[in-house]
Design a protein around this nucleic acid. Sequence first.
DNA 1: TTATTGATTGTTCCG
DNA 2: CGGAACAATCAATAA
Length: 167
Amino acid sequence: MAKKASKSKNDRSSSTSVASAKSPSTTSNHQMVLRMKSSDKMKKIAQGSVVSEKETRPKSRLKSKLQQKKKTKVDAKMPKKPPTAFFYFLEDFRKEFQEQNPDIKSMRDIGKACGEKWKTMTYEEKVKYYDIATEKRAEFDRAMAEYNKRKESGEDEETEDDSDYEE
DNA sequence: TTATTGATTGTTCCG
DNA sequence: CGGAACAATCAATAA
């Protein structure tokens, strides 16, 4: 029913975010800008707070993994980017997928299946995940504020846990 | 043993 | 407005 309508809207141009299905398409563009404004604040905080972020600027995503881990708990306090709606969908879908396909162990195959299914999902179904992601970002923003506050209060706290010798 | 890669889309930020 | 980069996950592989 509404699928047809959403299909038309499915165009990448306007599908940017929309976030809440409740909001009519009237605020499509405005919402994007509005959200950007919110980010603007975060941007300042992030830049002002993060002084030395190292020169990790990988042209390819190869380095992305490098930063993922490294036995550096220093960045453990810094909130990382929250997962997107697609990732939440993955978490749920992955469990089901493994049950139906116990033979598959890599997520690469799952990712493909997820991506395909994700595209088949209707807007209303995706909205559910979008809502989660949106809320998560709000929490992320809050975590950032707290992180800044904590840092301002005392950044001397460093959890040194260097016990990785086993076996 | 440890780190890295691979694949998916969404969100973010800079120019 | 558009592109670049990064977000998680897990298994397999390179060194």
